[in-house]
Write a protein that binds this DNA or RNA. Structure first.
Length: 149
DNA sequence: TAGGCCATCTGGTCCT
DNA sequence: AGGACCAGATGGCCTA
Protein backbone atom coordinates (compact mmCIF):
# COMPACT_ATOMS: atom_id res chain seq x y z
CA UNK A 1 0.00 0.00 0.00
CA UNK A 2 1.61 3.21 -1.11
CA UNK A 3 1.08 6.25 1.08
CA UNK A 4 -0.68 9.24 -0.38
CA UNK A 5 2.07 11.64 -1.43
CA UNK A 6 0.95 14.67 0.47
CA UNK A 7 3.36 17.29 1.65
CA UNK A 8 3.78 17.43 5.39
CA UNK A 9 2.76 21.05 5.54
CA UNK A 10 -0.53 20.20 3.94
CA UNK A 11 -0.96 17.25 6.23
CA UNK A 12 -0.43 19.48 9.22
CA UNK A 13 -2.59 22.31 8.01
CA UNK A 14 -5.79 20.48 8.52
CA UNK A 15 -7.36 22.37 5.65
CA UNK A 16 -8.58 19.46 3.59
CA UNK A 17 -9.90 21.57 0.76
CA UNK A 18 -6.39 22.90 0.11
CA UNK A 19 -4.65 19.52 0.07
CA UNK A 20 -2.36 19.03 -2.90
CA UNK A 21 -0.43 16.03 -4.09
CA UNK A 22 3.32 16.45 -4.76
CA UNK A 23 2.63 15.97 -8.43
CA UNK A 24 1.01 19.32 -8.27
CA UNK A 25 -2.44 18.10 -9.22
CA UNK A 26 -5.21 19.13 -6.94
CA UNK A 27 -5.98 16.34 -4.52
CA UNK A 28 -9.58 16.42 -3.64
CA UNK A 29 -10.10 16.00 0.08
CA UNK A 30 -12.10 12.92 -0.70
CA UNK A 31 -8.98 11.30 -2.23
CA UNK A 32 -6.99 11.17 1.00
CA UNK A 33 -9.87 10.49 3.33
CA UNK A 34 -11.18 7.66 1.15
CA UNK A 35 -7.72 6.15 0.94
CA UNK A 36 -7.17 6.41 4.67
CA UNK A 37 -10.58 4.96 5.27
CA UNK A 38 -10.03 2.00 2.99
CA UNK A 39 -6.58 1.42 4.48
CA UNK A 40 -8.04 1.41 7.97
CA UNK A 41 -10.85 -0.89 6.85
CA UNK A 42 -8.44 -3.36 5.29
CA UNK A 43 -6.23 -3.28 8.36
CA UNK A 44 -9.20 -4.04 10.59
CA UNK A 45 -10.28 -6.86 8.29
CA UNK A 46 -6.75 -8.27 8.34
CA UNK A 47 -6.71 -8.07 12.14
CA UNK A 48 -9.99 -9.97 12.30
CA UNK A 49 -8.70 -12.63 9.92
CA UNK A 50 -5.52 -12.98 11.96
CA UNK A 51 -7.56 -13.33 15.15
CA UNK A 52 -9.68 -16.05 13.55
CA UNK A 53 -6.58 -17.81 12.29
CA UNK A 54 -4.98 -17.79 15.73
CA UNK A 55 -8.23 -18.98 17.29
CA UNK A 56 -8.26 -21.88 14.84
CA UNK A 57 -4.70 -22.66 15.79
CA UNK A 58 -5.60 -22.59 19.49
CA UNK A 59 -8.57 -24.89 18.86
CA UNK A 60 -6.18 -27.33 17.23
CA UNK A 61 -3.87 -27.08 20.25
CA UNK A 62 -6.80 -27.80 22.58
CA UNK A 63 -7.72 -30.87 20.55
CA UNK A 64 -4.14 -32.03 20.68
CA UNK A 65 -4.01 -31.49 24.48
CA UNK A 66 -7.05 -33.79 24.82
CA UNK A 67 -5.36 -36.74 23.13
CA UNK A 68 -1.92 -36.27 24.58
CA UNK A 69 -1.20 -37.77 28.04
CA UNK A 70 -0.88 -35.34 30.92
CA UNK A 71 0.50 -37.44 33.72
CA UNK A 72 0.09 -35.65 37.03
CA UNK A 73 -0.25 -32.28 35.33
CA UNK A 74 -2.84 -30.19 37.15
CA UNK A 75 -2.42 -27.19 34.90
CA UNK A 76 -2.77 -27.37 31.13
CA UNK A 77 0.29 -27.80 29.00
CA UNK A 78 1.68 -24.77 27.24
CA UNK A 79 1.76 -24.83 23.45
CA UNK A 80 5.43 -25.71 23.42
CA UNK A 81 4.95 -28.48 26.00
CA UNK A 82 1.97 -29.82 24.05
CA UNK A 83 4.06 -30.16 20.91
CA UNK A 84 6.91 -31.79 22.81
CA UNK A 85 4.54 -34.20 24.54
CA UNK A 86 2.85 -35.08 21.25
CA UNK A 87 6.24 -35.87 19.80
CA UNK A 88 7.16 -38.12 22.74
CA UNK A 89 3.76 -39.79 22.61
CA UNK A 90 3.98 -40.56 18.90
CA UNK A 91 7.48 -41.95 19.30
CA UNK A 92 6.42 -44.12 22.23
CA UNK A 93 3.43 -45.50 20.32
CA UNK A 94 5.63 -46.20 17.33
CA UNK A 95 8.02 -48.10 19.58
CA UNK A 96 5.20 -50.12 21.12
CA UNK A 97 3.93 -51.01 17.67
CA UNK A 98 7.36 -52.14 16.55
CA UNK A 99 7.80 -54.19 19.75
CA UNK A 100 4.41 -55.81 19.26
CA UNK A 101 5.23 -56.78 15.70
CA UNK A 102 8.56 -58.16 16.72
CA UNK A 103 6.97 -60.01 19.62
CA UNK A 104 4.31 -61.69 17.50
CA UNK A 105 6.96 -62.93 15.11
CA UNK A 106 9.27 -63.91 17.94
CA UNK A 107 6.58 -65.79 19.87
CA UNK A 108 6.21 -68.44 17.18
CA UNK A 109 9.89 -69.10 17.19
CA UNK A 110 10.04 -69.21 21.04
CA UNK A 111 7.11 -71.66 21.23
CA UNK A 112 8.85 -73.92 18.81
CA UNK A 113 12.11 -73.57 20.73
CA UNK A 114 10.44 -74.33 24.08
CA UNK A 115 8.68 -77.37 22.77
CA UNK A 116 11.86 -78.94 21.55
CA UNK A 117 14.60 -77.64 23.90
CA UNK A 118 14.84 -76.16 27.48
CA UNK A 119 11.33 -75.45 28.75
CA UNK A 120 12.15 -73.82 32.15
CA UNK A 121 14.01 -70.83 30.80
CA UNK A 122 11.38 -70.31 28.14
CA UNK A 123 8.58 -70.07 30.70
CA UNK A 124 10.54 -67.44 32.59
CA UNK A 125 11.07 -65.46 29.38
CA UNK A 126 7.44 -65.69 28.31
CA UNK A 127 6.30 -64.60 31.77
CA UNK A 128 8.48 -61.54 31.56
CA UNK A 129 7.05 -60.64 28.19
CA UNK A 130 3.47 -60.96 29.39
CA UNK A 131 4.15 -58.78 32.42
CA UNK A 132 5.68 -56.14 30.21
CA UNK A 133 2.66 -56.16 27.94
CA UNK A 134 0.17 -55.97 30.80
CA UNK A 135 0.65 -52.23 31.12
CA UNK A 136 1.77 -50.89 27.78
CA UNK A 137 0.71 -47.36 28.67
CA UNK A 138 3.09 -47.03 31.53
CA UNK A 139 3.45 -43.32 32.27
CA UNK A 140 7.22 -43.27 32.04
CA UNK A 141 6.96 -44.04 28.35
CA UNK A 142 5.45 -40.63 27.68
CA UNK A 143 7.22 -38.56 30.25
CA UNK A 144 7.87 -35.05 29.03
CA UNK A 145 11.54 -34.21 28.62
CA UNK A 146 11.77 -30.68 27.30
CA UNK A 147 14.86 -29.93 25.30
CA UNK A 148 16.93 -27.09 26.55
CA UNK A 149 18.25 -24.81 23.86
C1' DT B 1 8.59 -8.04 41.14
C1' DA B 2 10.65 -10.76 37.45
C1' DG B 3 9.68 -14.19 34.21
C1' DG B 4 6.63 -17.11 31.47
C1' DC B 5 2.74 -17.47 28.59
C1' DC B 6 -0.63 -15.62 25.80
C1' DA B 7 -3.61 -12.52 22.71
C1' DT B 8 -3.54 -8.98 19.63
C1' DC B 9 -1.77 -5.69 16.33
C1' DT B 10 1.14 -4.81 12.58
C1' DG B 11 4.05 -4.90 8.45
C1' DG B 12 6.31 -7.92 5.28
C1' DT B 13 6.27 -11.77 2.02
C1' DC B 14 4.32 -15.23 -0.80
C1' DC B 15 0.60 -17.22 -3.39
C1' DT B 16 -3.71 -17.34 -6.09
C1' DA C 1 -5.70 -7.03 -5.25
C1' DG C 2 -6.60 -9.66 -1.49
C1' DG C 3 -5.92 -13.54 1.59
C1' DA C 4 -2.83 -16.65 4.25
C1' DC C 5 1.07 -17.05 6.88
C1' DC C 6 4.79 -15.43 9.64
C1' DA C 7 7.62 -12.96 12.99
C1' DG C 8 8.41 -8.95 15.95
C1' DA C 9 6.51 -5.73 19.30
C1' DT C 10 3.60 -4.77 23.05
C1' DG C 11 0.73 -5.16 26.97
C1' DG C 12 -2.05 -8.04 30.23
C1' DC C 13 -2.42 -11.83 33.42
C1' DC C 14 -0.61 -15.22 36.50
C1' DT C 15 2.68 -17.47 39.54
C1' DA C 16 6.85 -18.31 42.31
Amino acid sequence: MKPCKLSSSNMDSGLEADLQCRSGTVCVAKCSSDRLESTAKRRLAANARERRRMQGLNTAFDRLRKVVPQWGQDKKLSKYETLQMALSYIMALTRILAEAERYSAEKDWISFHCEHFHQESCHAYMGQKVAAEADPYEPRLFSFHPDHY
